[in-house]
């Protein structure tokens, strides 16, 4: 797959020249994903209704055009030749990526049942720890101040009640 060459219009020579394809596998995978996305947009637009206004192109044509553009551009991204100084490999998901986003997801799901203050305290402790801070005093201090201040700021100053959860006994 990496040894593919693409024909490019050579500016200097005025003829077709063959250049090495962009090496980054991540980018190629992403362009395939976008190609499929564009195709889904185009195909599903055929199920949309026609407009009853005369001369209106209707709700389907516009997304269909966009879908076609996405398909064209993703093909262009796929067959783009490698450029000088471009990194050969792009690592999209870092080692810790899933270790970071899974707790984030759990935190968001916890917000309603457990409540803002308690779940935010837990999330803050984890995150400050992950940032490499070891002093317990600092961790506890910031993990308590942030949720409490934000809670009261949003509830009383901005009139946005944040979920109370298990602390629903406070007024």
């Amino acid at each position: 797959m990496t040894e593919l060459d693409v024909p490019v219009w050579g500016i200097r020579t005025g003829t077709l020249v063959y250049k090495r394809l962009c090496m980054s596998r991540a980018r190629r995978i992403f362009s395939i994903v976008l190609l499929i996305f564009g195709a889904v947009v185009v195909i599903s637009s055929f199920w949309l209704d026609k407009s009853f206004i005369s001369y209106d192109i209707g709700p389907a044509i516009y997304p269909r055009i966009l879908g076609v553009i996405v398909i064209l551009l993703s093909v262009m991204m796929f067959i783009r030749p490698a450029q000088d100084g471009e990194p050969e490999k792009i690592r999209v998901f870092g080692k810790k990526f899933f270790l970071i986003i899974i707790p984030m997801m759990i935190y968001i799901l916890m917000l309603k049942p457990v409540g803002f203050i308690v779940s935010t305290m837990l999330a803050m402790i984890l995150m400050i720890r992950a940032m490499g801070e070891k002093r317990i005093f600092n961790i506890v201090l910031y993990a308590t101040i942030t949720p409490v201040v934000l809670y009261f700021m949003f509830s009383f100053l901005l009139h946005v009640p944040l979920p109370k959860g298990i602390l629903s006994f406070i007024a």
Partner: peptide
């Protein structure tokens, strides 16, 4: 340019989600 335009068109497609303002049809 290709990547920049691609990003712009993705934004346009995401914006079509919901009720179509002209005809009232539901999309995506």
């Amino acid at each position: 340019v290709v990547r920049g335009l691609l990003a712009g068109v993705i934004g346009l497609i995401v914006a079509t989600v919901g009720i179509d303002n002209t005809s009232g049809t539901l999309r995506y």
